[in-house]
Design a protein around this nucleic acid. Structure first.
Length: 425
DNA sequence: TCTGGGGTCCTAGGACCC
DNA sequence: TCTGGGGTCCTAGGACCC
């Protein structure tokens, strides 16, 4: 029996590539996509990477380079990227029996059953060409006998131009050669903390880690790292689930456009996060049993910062925005402290249940009013999803200017707003 | 002046039970 | 003064990912 085989398909500089699909004048030029509030670099074109600009760097520190190299800045346009990502994964699902959408710009394919019938390198090149032709997005493909090695292969496909975007890492000797020149911190699952600890143990390269006893790694770290070691050894330890587990939590949080110093503004912001979180929850057809709120001042304050979190179980699991707002408001008031300049807040929903399995409360509310709640929320989602406008909750509208986010260099919503669809002339 | 947003998984430790 | 042992469940926090 042949060993398992997985491919990782990864879009190059995803956000920048999306912008370029609709604005080809950006091709070949240095482009940065900045996060919400236009403050932080979240995606870089290869030209920008070559200059040495790091992921996550704040824009205000980059002004000299931006001037010198004529770097073009775009605000992040998540509805455009989401729509492009959906097309990307639709195409992939036609090209492999099992697909795991790992993130907005990456997917694993299970090619195990195709090995007997196809030349996998050729198949991988076909995947690359098809995605490019049908979406305009450039991708790299790496494949190997485990997910961690596939990840390593796709990284090599990006790094070495000679690979022309496809790397076959199924051969064990080749695996060892690549791992020998890969620093341990570049392995999927090894972050800065673990890398430091591994180096202190004398493990510098991926190959050295692969040659370490997995049970030793387990005792010093955790089962997660043990799995990583076994993956590097070529055993397929992670499998791709055909039905991915349901989400376990929903977080909505954002940095503010300007500092928030008034409780009313904070309540408005938190309310609007609850509204979005509840929409996501209903789209998953779930109800939540627990809600948390967190708020914080700048992480970069020398002293006098404040950050806190509070959570509460809901009286009854719900997806009704109104009930969630009541709970979030109570928690926000509890956390609020005058005299601070808040930079960020968020809400988190957890403890999800299936609404159909939830027992109705015998005492307070009858089944009829629960039916009404659901009908109201359905109507709300339907109107808000129609593109005709949005119904909002009263508290959201108070002074949005004071906390709403800045996106001054936003590209049009080419794929999700009729008025923004590009014209071919 | 200005430092992203949204997730996952695991572990330790506390509360509680018999 | 001395303070069991074993189990479950929950939560907070840490580490990682893109």
């Amino acid at each position: 029996m042949r060993p398992a085989c997985f491919a990782l398909v990864d879009v190059d500089n995803f956000y920048v590539s999306c912008e370029r699909v609709f604005d080809p004048s950006l091709n070949g030029r240095p482009v940065i996509v900045v996060g919400n509030n236009d403050q932080c670099c979240v995606a870089r074109s290869s030209e920008v990477k070559a200059i040495g600009i790091k992921m996550g760097e704040p824009l205000f520190k980059l002004q000299p380079q931006i001037q010198r190299h004529g770097i073009i800045i775009r605000s992040s346009n998540y509805s455009l990227y989401g729509a492009m990502s959906a097309r990307f994964s639709t195409i992939l699902s036609a090209l492999a029996p099992t697909v795991l959408e790992y993130s907005i710009d990456e997917a694993f394919l299970d090619l195990t059953s195709l090995q007997a019938h196809y030349d996998l390198s050729e198949h991988a090149r076909g995947v690359k060409q098809t995605v490019l032709r049908w979406t305009g997005l450039p991708v790299c493909v790496g494949f190997s006998t485990s997910l961690t090695l596939a990840k390593l292969a796709s990284r090599a496909a990006k790094k070495y131009p000679a690979a022309r975007g496809v790397v076959d890492l199924t051969d064990p000797a080749r695996q060892r050669r690549l791992m020998a020149i890969t620093p341990v911190g570049d392995i999927w699952g090894v972050g800065p903390r673990i890398a430091r600890k591994l180096r202190a143990m004398g493990i510098e390269s991926a190959l050295q880690l692969a040659d370490t006893d997995p049970s030793l790694i387990r005792s010093r770290f955790s089962v997660v790292m043990e799995r990583t070691v076994r993956d590097l050894q070529g055993e397929a330890h992670h499998r791709i689930e055909t039905s991915p587990p349901a989400k376990g939590q929903i977080i909505c949080s954002k940095s503010f456009g300007t500092r928030v110093t008034e409780l009313a503004d904070m309540l408005a912001a938190v309310t609007s996060y609850v509204v979005r979180a509840a929409e996501k929850l209903r789209s998953e057809k779930r109800v939540a049993g627990r809600l948390s709120v967190f708020l914080m001042t700048s992480r970069f304050l020398e002293h006098g910062g404040y950050s806190n979190e509070a959570s509460s179980s809901l009286e009854r699991p719900t997806a009704d925005t109104r009930n969630l707002i009541v709970c979030a408001t109570r928690l926000t008031r509890k956390l609020w402290k005058d005299g601070h300049r808040f930079t960020k807040a968020g809400v988190m929903l957890t403890d999800f249940r299936d609404p159909l399995c939830e027992q109705h409360d015998l005492f307070s509310t009858d089944a009829r009013s629960q039916g009404r709640s659901q009908a109201l929320m359905d109507t709300l989602d339907c109107i808000n999803g129609s593109g005709l406008g949005r119904i909002q909750f009263a508290r959201q509208r108070i002074s949005e200017d004071s906390w709403g986010m800045k996106r001054e260099r936003l590209s049009p919503n080419y794929l999700s707003r009729w008025s923004d669809i590009p014209e071919a002339k």
